[in-house]
């Protein structure tokens, strides 16, 4: 160890992988519906795609959780994305490819991908 800068680098490198363990209020929250219907409709690949994109883009401040059935089985796999201080947005009939756009446009740039939302499907 030669300097505080070096120490800070180790800290930053590790922080993203441990701050999940603190009670957090801020940050973006991604909820994937993983009820039986969701899993049957392909929720696992969607979940994995989210993890992949987050890893690729170094998004430390995103929490990905699963939940049970969100309730509209015919529109599964469903995903809810909540940016800090904003309304929840529900995406339906998700696929791994759609995830890429949601992360790039919504999670990173704050632009809701309206064509995938539940409003567009109804």
């Amino acid at each position: 160890m030669k300097s505080l800068k070096e120490l800070e680098e180790i800290k930053q490198r590790t922080l993203d992988s441990v701050n999940l363990r603190q009670d957090r209020t801020g940050g973006t929250r991604v909820v994937v519906g993983m009820g039986t219907c969701g899993i049957a409709a392909g929720a696992r690949p969607v979940l994995l795609a989210f993890l992949e994109e987050i890893k690729k883009r170094n998004l430390g401040d995103v929490t990905v959780v699963q939940t049970g059935c969100i309730g509209v089985c015919r529109l599964e796999p469903m995903v809810e994305v909540t940016l800090p201080g904003e309304e929840k947005v529900t995406y339906v009939k998700m696929t791994a490819d759609k995830v890429k756009r949601v992360v790039a446009e919504h999670v990173v740039n704050g632009q809701v991908v309206s064509e995938f939302t539940i409003g567009a499907a109804e």
């Binding site: 490198r13 363990r21 979940l47 987050i54 890893k55 998004l59 990905v64």
Partner: peptide, 10 residues
């Protein structure tokens, strides 16, 4: 970077 969606602390 490493990213895990969940941590299990034992």
């Amino acid at each position: 970077m490493e990213f895990y969606r969940s941590h299990v602390l034992i």
